[in-house]
Amino acid sequence: MSHAISMTVNGRSVSATVESRTLLTEFLRDNLRLTGTHVGCDTSQCGACTVHVNGKSVKSCTMLAVQCDGAEVLTIEGLANGEDLHPMQKAFNDHHGLQCGFCTPGMVMSALEVADNNSDPSDEDIAKGLAGNYCRCTGYENIYRAVKAGAKAMGS
C-alpha cells in the first residue's frame, strides 16, 4: 500500500509517494538525500536519528513517513544559515563536543529541545535531556560544555 504525502522539511514543501512501512529516516535520507540524519541502531535507543517534528524531538527511525503527512520537520541541515552555523552547532565546534561526529546531528537536535526549555541548563537537566542520545567517543564532558554554551548563546 502506498500513500501520497506532503510535509514541510526545513521550511521547504515536499511531496512524495511512500509505502506504509517507509520510515521517516528512510524518507529523509533516501528520498530527500538529507543524510545528516544518521542511523546508529535498530532498537530505537541511540538517538543519532533525532529530528524535530512539529517542534518536538523524535527518533525518526521510529516514525513512519506517512505519520508525518502535513507535519513540519526540522533536520540538522535546517539549522545553519548558509555558512553561518546555528549557535548550538557553533558551541559544539568551539567546545570540541564531538570526535567521530556520528552522534552529533542527533545530539544537536536533542540539545535544542534542552535549550528551548531552559537557557541555563544544569548538568542534571542536560543528562536528562540527552538520555536518549548515545555517544561512543567523547565521554560526554565536552558535549555538556557545548550544550551549556549553546543554550546560553540561544537565550541571549
Binding site: S44, G47, T50, K56, S57, V58, K59, T62, M63, S110, E113, K128, G129, A131, G132, N133
Partner: peptide, 8 residues
Amino acid sequence: GDQQVRNR
C-alpha cells in the same frame, strides 16, 4: 525512557 520517547 528518554525525551524523544516521551514526546511520542
